[in-house]
């Protein structure tokens, strides 16, 4: 082999980069970590099926926002024909009362930032103040 002194370190750097996730997660002690958001105890169902909400809650809230504020339509008919008020504070947060335990876990996990909490507040947050 020629120029091993340069090529071997180069390859080691490559291997280090490729396997970086192992080291990163190992050091932070979160190998295989999956967040377990705290679900409301007393209520069993959300406005839509869980799978749908998990994927589309952002779109749903966006639709609610424009529908309620801009069109003045505030009743949401779910796919199972139940009726809900379109409101983050008066519908969603009635069950999901804790932001850190529910929202933030997954948002942090997926590296997603949202600006809802600049204005809307959780009941738990107020008690702390």
């Amino acid at each position: 082999m020629y120029d091993g002194k340069k090529i071997i370190p180069g390859l080691l750097i490559f291997l280090g980069l490729v396997t970086y996730p192992f080291w990163h997660n190992g050091v932070s002690g979160k190998t295989g970590y999956v967040p377990k958001p705290k679900l409301p105890v007393d209520k069993k169902e959300c406005v839509e099926p869980k799978d749908y909400i998990r994927v589309n809650h952002k779109d749903l809230l966006d639709d609610w926002k424009s529908s309620a504020i801009r069109k003045g339509r505030r009743t949401y008919v779910a796919s199972n024909q139940k009726r809900y008020t379109m409101s983050l504070t008066r519908t969603c947060m009635q069950c999901h009362t804790d932001r850190a335990e529910f929202c933030d876990q997954c948002h942090k996990y997926a590296g997603v930032e949202n600006k809802c909490w600049d204005c809307h507040m959780f009941p738990k947050e107020i008690k702390k103040e």
């Binding site: 839509e48 589309n56 639709d63 003045g72 339509r73 505030r74 009743t75 949401y76 009726r83």
Partner: peptide, 14 residues
């Protein structure tokens, strides 16, 4: 897989 349900129109009282 899941169709987005249409928000219901409230009575046009506005």
């Amino acid at each position: 897989k899941v169709e987005l349900p249409e928000p219901s129109p409230t009575p046009e009282r506005l």
